[in-house]
């Protein structure tokens, strides 16, 4: 079993900010838009270095999405940024008509996704955005796991032509992805090989999956752990190759069970290779105020939950 180490914990939103800073220097067509959340999105460096390529939109997210769509006509690459809740559910119709249906090269980049937003509570803790965004034809949906991967994803989507929803978060999490690892949209990353159970994790839950892998190993269970940073297009080949070997799977995500990564994996398995599946996700519930750690514990988004589901799903194998 491969062991992953990290030198520091960092927030994924800072990875986005670092990616934007680099894009500001390397990609003259990249334009940043923000709806009154510049500091939260870590756009300070980009704005300082490229003041003419930053568009403050104020607290008017619907307009921001339309403006971004219009900017693409001039060959510009707009990165529209806000909190995940305000960049998905609040503007779903604008994204659907002006971005997805119109196939505009807009990058919707959102922070503070999920429960780990913490104390602000359920109004801001969007747990339905992956579901909404992946339902839109042509939309790419990415949920990277740490600082380095978020930075690499931010840079990668600038070179991809088409609408993208890039989701990241607020808390500091172990930064273990190699800084020089290129980001390949739609290409899952096999983190650990194992024969007993496949664990497919996305976003902040990837580190929890690695921790779960260690705990399972102590019980003699070999878990195969895959980082599904791109939920759409989903790396079906990687999922089927792994489950063909292990015969069962657990998904882990900081999102509703309805419409999330687990649903996507279930669809792939049901259509191609039916196998027992368990899901670690929020089960048809809104969040609440609390520290990120308390909330992840209360709603069962932990390494321990992944271990329990892994042991249960192995029992379901015939």
């Amino acid at each position: 079993m491969k062991t992953y180490t990290f030198t520091e914990k960092k927030d994924t939103r800072s990875g986005f900010g670092a990616g934007m800073a680099e894009l500001g220097r390397s990609h003259p067509d990249v334009v940043a838009l923000c709806a009154d959340l510049v500091a939260s999105l870590k756009l300070d460096t980009f704005i300082k270095e490229n003041p003419d390529r930053f568009i403050q939109c104020g607290i008017a997210e619907a307009n921001m999405i339309g403006v971004a769509a219009g900017l693409t006509l001039n060959g510009l690459i707009p990165f529209a940024t806000t909190f995940a809740n305000f960049g998905s559910s609040r503007v779903l119709d604008q994204i659907r008509q002006a971005v997805a249906y119109s196939n505009k090269n807009v990058k919707i980049c959102v922070s503070h996704a999920g429960l780990t937003l913490g104390e602000d509570g359920a109004t801001h803790q969007v747990l339905e955005d992956i579901s909404m965004m992946k339902a839109l034809p042509g939309m790419t949906v990415i949920n990277p796991c740490d600082f380095n991967q978020t930075k690499a994803a931010t840079i990668a989507i600038a070179d991809y032509e088409g609408p993208v929803y890039l989701r990241f978060g607020r808390p500091v999490v172990p930064n273990f992805t190699p800084a020089d690892q290129p980001f390949e949209i739609g290409k899952a990353i096999l983190l650990n090989e194992g024969a007993d159970v496949s664990i497919f994790a996305t976003g902040h839950m990837v580190w929890q999956a690695l921790e779960a892998g260690k705990l399972l190993a102590e019980q003699g269970v070999e878990a195969e752990i895959t980082n599904i940073h791109t939920i759409k297009p989903l790396d079906k080949e990687a999922i089927l190759a792994s489950v063909s070997k292990t015969g069962c799977a657990v998904t882990a995500e900081e999102h509703q069970m309805n419409g999330g990564l687990g649903d996507s994996v279930a669809q792939v398995l049901a259509l191609n290779h039916p196998a027992p599946l368990e899901m670690v996700a929020v089960n048809d519930s809104f969040g609440e105020s609390g520290t990120p750690e308390q909330l992840m514990e209360k709603y069962g988004l932990t390494a321990a939950s992944i271990v329990a589901k892994a042991l249960a799903v192995i029992q379901r194998k015939k």
Partner: peptide, 24 residues
């Protein structure tokens, strides 16, 4: 150049196009 039908969106898109022309 853009889908329209769900009302209220065109002025924002036009704003983006006009902004882009300024940048360019």
């Amino acid at each position: 150049r853009i889908a329209s039908g769900s009302l209220g969106q065109g002025l924002s898109v036009a704003a983006g196009a006009a902004y882009g022309k300024k940048i360019r």
